[in-house]
Design a protein around this nucleic acid. Sequence first.
DNA 1: CTACGGATGTCCT
DNA 2: GGACATCCGTAGG
Length: 208
Amino acid sequence: MDEFASLFALEDTDEIAKKLLGVELLYQTQRNLVGGHIVEVEAYLGEQDPGSRAYRGQKKHNNNLLYGPSGTIYMFKMYGMIMLNVVTQTTDKPEGVFIRAIEPSRGIEELSLNRPKIGFDQTNGPGKLSQALGIRDYELNGQSFNDSLLRFGFEEKLEPKEVLTLARKGSDETQPWEQRGHRFVVAGNPYVSTIAKEEIDLIDHGWN
DNA sequence: CTACGGATGTCCT
DNA sequence: GGACATCCGTAGG
């Protein structure tokens, strides 16, 4: 079994989310391979999760893809920007991981053309990273992160020194469901959204 | 630096 | 007509 298959064979979506940190998110454009290492993710845990797009089986934002096979690319739009998610479980278990930030590693020039911003502001948010990669429509929605133009790369995977568990963004932290924390970040990485400046590790960005 | 409000496109009720 | 898993510019400490 390869790394992709064994990762998505795990039954705990929180665990899958954590193990995606350091994996490369790669996009083959017409010119280049662009992408970066995943540094921030959130887990969404199915029909009993009040924050989930599948909460109580409600149909919205084409969430039927969440019920498909693990590894499926699931996109939706927020204020016109594409949000990238990966389905993490099998049929009838609509769980997924939301990719919130990456550290650029490939195709830096093209990233800068797509999103002309300076420094860490390039890809430190879910809408920002899809802009930088050049993903603006639903063309790859429903395909697989295993073998489509948008895929995960395990060859150059980095290992975080430390993973922080935080509350999901936009969540009500007083709710029982949120107590465990379902947002995971590479501690000290400068591309983590809303990281405080004094927390940033400028030496090695939080990688081993 | 943090805080806040307006812009913005889809999708739902 | 409202909600929203966001972004950005501006105001103020």
